[in-house]
């Protein structure tokens, strides 16, 4: 198992923390993990991205050249990463903020209205967790429980009250994927 996941969006969307959370969850499952941020002038007011590698084997490059999955939280990131995804890989697009569709046909695109779904749960701030839930459902890279466990490790104790909301957000995103899969099976092309 080797999952190389790019997460990309605006600075402030919680992209880096979402990546660290997933990395932590992989570590709790005793997998080899690495996290690496983009860093540079493009971070200031522009796009931010990070790469998360989770593997059964020692990780060679922490820098991801050909992701097995990409979470895309804004339009510039779609332009930047659509072409890099490995054929057969997943691209998860936050359709609340991105109208453009994925052009490639050799990767699996999944559109998640993450902001609307998050607002439906009462907080737009968990939009990243919604889309992370969709990723977990699609890739099974780590379990939902491991992500929840990781929240306990990365959040200070006075923020533990936020854990149920984050769990709901994960489940919400996963639910959208399950619905879409049912739809795909019911309407074979």
């Amino acid at each position: 198992m080797l999952q190389e996941i790019i997460m990309a969006g605006f600075g402030g969307q919680g992209i880096m923390s979402m990546g660290q959370l997933l990395t932590y969850a992989g570590m709790l499952e005793n997998k080899h993990v690495a996290w690496i941020p983009s860093y540079g002038p493009e971070m200031r007011g522009g796009t931010a991205n990070c790469g998360v590698t989770i593997s059964d084997r020692e990780i060679s490059s922490p820098v991801i050249f050909e992701p097995t999955a990409a979470i895309i939280m804004n339009r510039p990131s779609l332009d930047k990463f659509e072409l890099t995804v490995k054929p057969g890989g997943f691209i998860l697009v936050n359709s609340s903020l991105i109208e453009q569709k994925v052009q490639r046909t050799d990767i699996k695109a999944c559109y998640i209205p993450a902001n609307e779904l998050a607002e439906g749960l009462g907080s737009s701030r968990v939009s990243g967790m919604v889309i992370l839930g969709a990723l977990l459902e699609l890739t099974k890279v780590v379990s939902f429980d491991s992500v929840e466990e990781s929240l306990k490790k990365v959040l200070p104790e006075y923020r533990y009250n936020l854990i149920p909301l984050n769990r709901q957000a994960l489940e919400k995103g996963a639910g959208v994927v399950r619905q879409a899969m049912k739809f795909a099976v019911a309407n074979p092309r």
Binding site: A34, P37, Y39, P62
Partner: peptide
Amino acid sequence: DGVLGQMMEP
């Protein structure tokens, strides 16, 4: 190098 400085691992 910058990769080693910036990356996270256990």
